[in-house]
């Protein structure tokens, strides 16, 4: 069992947890992810690592309620435990293996969207700890949904934007990128964009235009996370890659986002039905016409 030592609500539908997993904490690096399973009947849920404490042997995860399983997970408290927690999975971010002196000359721009802020944080934090300051854009739908602002501010040169303008800048992250590059004359060697797939797609369309190499972190459907099932396959350039073992980070200009976006829809009907059932409990009969009810 993997004990939850801290459970916190960060924003509406977004939660943070510290989980005891010494083997994962000892080996994990920025860019990697874990798979968590609540109990015997639960599904294997892949989540990016938001932070880690090697001394305490804990991993911080951040997740958003998107289905019945994450809804159930959000109800777990400090002191509860997950039956399974495995990792670190995937390859660490490329820069982890680069020469620090060279990295210091590199201008990096991080672009985070929504819960994507969670996996961006350990990356900029790692760089900060190695004496490298990066720029970071965090985009959120609104002020209420903004997470980890203070944490991000302490380790990066931060630009916050909200879709509805309820806080700081107004507009999409792509507009901030344009502003920084075109109006403020900022130069970047690489952009690292993590967030909803649709956001990463549009960031890549823009950075391609601007001639900025871009790395994205893909979060497709997954089962085992060790390369065994192939559910997470993506087309990258002319090749089929498994996000779990080859990624999750890829050259964003080579990823076939349209295919990846469609593949993400595979179980949406099942997931939606399960979520409605979980939310409505005994009153769930499918009469609303939304999910069709149980067969």
């Amino acid at each position: 069992m993997y004990k939850i030592c801290k459970a916190e609500k960060l924003a509406e539908n977004i939660y943070l947890m510290d989980v005891e997993a010494p083997r994962v904490a000892k080996h994990c690096e920025p860019g990697q992810f874990i798979i968590v399973k609540m109990n015997e009947e639960g599904e294997r849920i892949p989540l990016t690592i938001c932070d880690y404490d090697k001394a305490a042997g804990t991993i911080t995860i951040v997740f958003q309620i998107v289905g019945a399983s994450t809804l159930e997970m959000s109800k777990m408290q400090a002191g509860d435990a997950f039956s399974d927690f495995v990792g670190p999975l995937g390859q660490p971010s490329e820069f982890v293996h680069e020469d620090i002196a060279e990295l210091k000359n590199k201008k990096m721009l991080f672009v985070a969207g929504g819960v994507g802020t969670a996996p961006v944080y350990p990356q900029v934090k790692w760089l900060h700890e190695h004496g490298i300051e990066a720029d970071a854009i965090v985009g959120s739908k609104s002020k209420d949904l903004l997470i980890l602002e203070k944490e991000m501010e302490s380790v990066s040169n931060l630009y916050v934007t909200t879709d509805d303008g309820s806080y700081k800048r107004k507009g999409m992250v792509t507009e901030v990128i344009k502003d920084l590059v075109q109006n403020q004359g900022k130069k970047y060697d690489v952009v690292i964009a993590i967030g909803p797939m649709i956001m990463m797609k549009f960031v890549c369309l823009l950075t391609k235009e601007l001639g900025l190499p871009t790395i994205v972190s893909m979060n497709p459907i997954m089962v085992d996370g060790t390369g065994m099932c192939g559910a997470c396959r993506l087309t990258v350039g002319a090749e089929v890659k498994f996000a779990c073992v080859d990624g999750p980070e890829f050259d964003g200009h080579l990823v076939n986002f349209d295919e990846a976006l469609k593949r993400q829809q595979l179980y949406k009907t099942d997931e939606g039905r399960a979520l409605l059932k979980a939310r409505e409990g005994d009153t769930h009969h499918g009469g609303c016409g939304n999910c069709g009810g149980d067969e």
Partner: peptide
Amino acid sequence: ETNVIIGKST
């Protein structure tokens, strides 16, 4: 010991 991926967890 379950949930240990050799090459990753150790």
